[in-house]
């Protein structure tokens, strides 16, 4: 019960603060429009790279363009939502350094919600837009016998993927309590993970695939469930049901990120730096 009220309080605070940032952005309308387009183009360059590659070959790691586009669309859309909602958490380190983080701690709202909503930027809709466009193309172009399970799996992947990436953002922010200048480490996991998942697992070395399946199970964002949808062999011979594990994995990620955040905040409040 108490947890539920806290969650409600958090969401409310998030909405209030995000609203303020949107209003702030809207004071510079032209610049805002520019940045949405810019964000779309910059994030879309990853797909342009894939298109460039496919202008020279018909398949990559044995996967065709529509199949790779499906991976890309799922990864980019899921990442896009996480990025929109929590993507500015890397400013936390700066806030700790300049002391403005303290002003968040004297407000009657959960700190995580305040940090999550910090610098909320609608321009990040650009990333989601290009992800959805590619995903739409892929869903039309792939050669799949659609079943109820496969259809259901698509939105499940996007939502769970967003939760998984969101957890990475939170965990990365928690790390900044310890190392304020190391915001870029979290980029290696968030942006790096997002990029990794845009390519088929068959491209990568077995050790790397094992790592992102068993150690940091990013494979459940799209690799495993998309393999099920496409009727392709799973990476690492995982069992059939593994395609339906994303909600479980996402839940696990959430809990761990929450614990990391608490530990980080506790460390900050006992050291003040």
């Amino acid at each position: 019960m108490a947890e539920a009220t806290r969650l409600g309080e958090g969401l409310r605070a998030y909405r209030l603060i995000a609203g303020m940032w949107i209003r702030s952005t809207m004071t510079y309308r032209t610049s805002f429009a520019l940045t949405v387009v810019g964000n779309l183009l910059i994030t879309g360059m990853d797909f342009a790279a894939i298109l460039l590659m496919f202008s020279q070959v018909d398949s990559l790691g044995g996967w065709t363009l529509p199949e790779v586009a499906l991976l890309y669309g799922l990864s980019a859309t899921a990442f896009g939502f996480a990025d929109l909602l929590l993507g500015s958490m890397d400013v936390l380190g700066g806030r700790i350094r300049d002391g403005s983080f303290d002003t968040l701690l004297v407000r009657p709202a959960p700190v995580l919600a305040q940090v999550g909503a910090d610098q909320f930027a609608l321009r990040r809709l650009g990333r989601i837009t290009q992800g959805v466009l590619v995903l739409g193309y892929a869903l039309v172009a792939v050669d799949v016998e659609w079943t109820a399970a496969k259809v259901l799996l698509v939105p499940v992947m996007v939502v769970c993927g967003a939760v998984i990436f969101g957890s990475l953002f939170v965990a990365g922010a928690a790390f900044q309590f310890v190392a304020q200048d190391a915001a870029e480490v979290q980029n290696a996991f968030t942006y790096g993970g997002g990029t990794l998942l845009q390519y088929p697992p068959t491209v990568f070395g077995t050790d790397l695939v094992r790592g992102v399946t068993y150690v940091l199970p990013l494979a459940f964002v799209n690799w495993v469930p998309a393999a099920y949808v496409l009727g392709r062999p799973y990476p690492l011979d995982l069992p059939e049901w593994a395609a339906f594990a994303p909600p479980l994995v996402a839940g696990g990620f959430c809990v761990l990120a929450g614990l990391a955040w608490r530990a980080g905040l506790r460390a900050y409040r006992s050291t003040g730096s």
């Binding site: 190392a179 304020q180 200048d181 870029e184 790096g192 990029t195 990794l196």
Partner: peptide, 16 residues
């Protein structure tokens, strides 16, 4: 710290 973090990130992206 930022330099170390950058080295790490560049290495990860390099591998991918």
């Amino acid at each position: 710290a930022a330099t170390a973090a950058g080295v790490f990130t560049n290495t990860v992206f390099g591998i991918i």
